[in-house]
């Protein structure tokens, strides 16, 4: 499967897909999309990169171990729920605030943090599975 064209194209394709996955993740609250879908797209991106160029470039590009990313995602998802403690409301009550970034008003909320956590868990776990299987391919 490692044709020249595929190998040349793969990094660009992967970058595009990862970018798209972040877009899908962020718009998920109002349009179709969200953490699960975003995570799946990103995981597919890394799987494709792995098939095209081998596993070690993917691991280098990710820098962290995929399962660490997954663990971090689960952590911030849980923390986003625990934040509601400070508002003296039950666990996982959504909290909303507006912030101005570069002149654009952005809604910031704990459900958004939670969704990012979901995204990271799905991305990390599925990438880990795909890479582990691709690694077996090589030996």
């Amino acid at each position: 499967m490692r044709t020249l064209i595929f190998r040349t194209m793969a990094p660009y394709l992967t970058s595009l897909m990862v970018l798209f996955s972040v877009f899908v993740l962020l718009r998920g609250h109002n349009e179709p999309g969200g953490g699960f879908i975003g995570g799946l797209i990103a995981a597919s991106a890394f799987a494709i990169y792995g098939i095209a160029c081998g596993v070690s470039p993917v691991r280098r590009a990710l820098y962290f171990h995929p399962m660490s990313i997954s663990g971090f995602g689960l952590f911030i998802a849980a923390v986003s729920g625990a934040l509601s403690m400070f508002g003296a409301v039950p666990f996982m009550t959504g909290l909303w605030t507006e912030a101005s970034i570069l002149g654009v008003t952005v809604d910031l909320s704990t459900p958004l943090v939670f969704d990012i956590g979901v995204y990271l868990v799905v991305l990390g776990s599925l990438t880990s599975i795909a890479l582990a299987l691709e690694e077996r391919e090589e030996d």
Binding site: H29, G34, G35, F36, A77, G94, W96, P111, V118
Partner: peptide, 20 residues
Amino acid sequence: AHGRNIVNVILVDFRGLDTL
């Protein structure tokens, strides 16, 4: 819940604990 995608709102807000 300030969300227009009802499915996503259910996932991350109404039934967030399930999703966790």
